[in-house]
Write a protein that binds this DNA or RNA. Sequence first.
DNA 1: GGTTAGACTCAAAGCGCTTTCAAATTGATT
DNA 2: AATCAATTTGAAAGCGCTTTGAGTCTAACC
Lengths: 344, 344
Amino acid sequence: MTMNLKQLAENLGLSQTTVSRALNGYPEVSESTRMRVMQAAEQFNYRPNTKAKGLATGRAMAIGHVIATSGQNELVNPVFADFLAGAGETYSRNGYDLFLSIIADEEEARVYRDLKAKGTIDGIIIHAPRMNDLRIPLLQQLEMPFLVHGRSSREANNYAWVDVNNRQAFERATEFLLDLGHRDIALVNGHEYMDFAQQRRTGYLNALKSRGVSPNGDIMASDEMTEAHGYNSAKRMLSDKNRPTAFLVSSMIIAFGVRRAIQEAGLTMGRDISVVTHDDVLSYFGTKDDVPVFTATRSSVKEAGRISAESLLDMINTPGMELPQRLLEAQLVIGRSTAPAPAS
Amino acid sequence: MTMNLKQLAENLGLSQTTVSRALNGYPEVSESTRMRVMQAAEQFNYRPNTKAKGLATGRAMAIGHVIATSGQNELVNPVFADFLAGAGETYSRNGYDLFLSIIADEEEARVYRDLKAKGTIDGIIIHAPRMNDLRIPLLQQLEMPFLVHGRSSREANNYAWVDVNNRQAFERATEFLLDLGHRDIALVNGHEYMDFAQQRRTGYLNALKSRGVSPNGDIMASDEMTEAHGYNSAKRMLSDKNRPTAFLVSSMIIAFGVRRAIQEAGLTMGRDISVVTHDDVLSYFGTKDDVPVFTATRSSVKEAGRISAESLLDMINTPGMELPQRLLEAQLVIGRSTAPAPAS
DNA sequence: GGTTAGACTCAAAGCGCTTTCAAATTGATT
DNA sequence: AATCAATTTGAAAGCGCTTTGAGTCTAACC
């Protein structure tokens, strides 16, 4: 059996009250008894029972992350792993637990209601917001502190979020390709109903427009961000007589697929065809080389996880504070995948 | 405020006892009052408070997953995302919550002790076991139900596990390459202290030995399973005058790197150089094509998550049952990345 | 009509903690 | 020696649930 407060108190010849106060750093307890208590707690490896503590304080000391597996294939985006790693670190440093729900997206509303009513968490982080995401008004109504990783542009902007400046990142990337002389720049994006995808598309179109290049729907694709999507889209576009000379793509995984199509077409990436990708800096795709393979708009999703968690904990511990909203700028890092447009 | 049992009972003109019994399906309550209670619970959107319920029953209704970020780079293996998705589905179907701890590996022992003492979970799943993994005796000593995803070959085999038959998978894959006439088969593996890596190596060596092919240390590499590891290892091996004609690699991500090195060397995968990889069937690398890109030993890690979760819940709900041990066989699926060895 | 089994219902204790309110102790001050 | 404030400790209530042990009521039996 594990030791509880009562036993610990008996052992010390003190009351539960005093022991509890000593452990929680209240000032009304003398330094000498605090020492005694701390030592005994250490010795017996005592940890307060989370559920009991939560019941008594009304705080769960836990944050929920709800991840909806999208589509009938129930895809699980690998960026979650890195985001959770960043957030998880912050939580454990602050004594919070991380509570994960992985569910089909049609269940989301029910899950939020449950989490609220069951009192298991103090706050929640929302992932992968849509253009106008119903989760935001729902959580506002439930009065559950929450923070959105990303934004939902068509909702009123009165909620907490941490997001990458996707629009600007893709605007800059497009300008960069234009500067290299490219005019037929393909966009291989995520689903258009995802907010980030829409932002990136806007940035891309803005850049084209400001240079007087008219967009071409034939070289814009959006779908689930898989390797296959990159491959299929690029393959199709490259087989066209007016094939693009550059690709702007929304994830490293898509980029792998695009590269495969390029090579399969007998072309060389970084010479015949340029590629710029967004790079979430996922650990296993390591771009630690001096000169990275892909030119990329880079922004660490793990770092975003860390910042999101910190912001949410702030919100919880300082009710009524101004809602944190952090726009992270992506770096444009030049790699080997881009070159001046070949003379046509 | 959310409604609690007391309020619900008052609302119905019943005692807490009766309402609780009605909700939990005890037989001592008449069908008519049960109906009334259920309806009222539905109407007021009542959910029993998890912490209170847990305190009263002594069960947390939660499973812990501890993921250690390995190395100084704090890599987060993307297979976790899919594994958690599989497990999470099982949990929510059975009313369990999922607790995630992401920590540096040196903290693991402390975290297990904490989880036990704090009473937040009823069971735990261990990932990525080493050759002789100290976590196993520790958890046995703590008397916390646990299941290992993978195995730890040098520990006594008296614990629950779910694992892929890595040895046999790689033995078959090696035999397949030998049948195609390959003799110089490279192995690009994970860290040798990981159990699965050791198993795969054994399978590979067994196959070579039984065909009288002597292993060559120069074409065996093991490291963190990143794209860079695949690229660097393959690049080095391919630059040798006695370069291998085939690669057997431990993950899709490594395989991407190997493919890059092959193409960069002006060679063609599936003609000049054959590649067989292990494929965890991660959703975003989708090998849904008719003929997959890579020939692979395939075993879904998401499915493993599902099976692991079910087994662990069984253990928890049927104490004293025989410890579940499931060995999953990998399929050898032929793709486009393998061909007969070129005549030398 | 009295007894009894069966079907329902409830009051209260307990899970392990925090926190309010009260009490005891100490030392300094008058 | 009496008073008072400051310091330190403790008893008990309460967080929201389950569960034990004890009723109450109805219908059925002799």
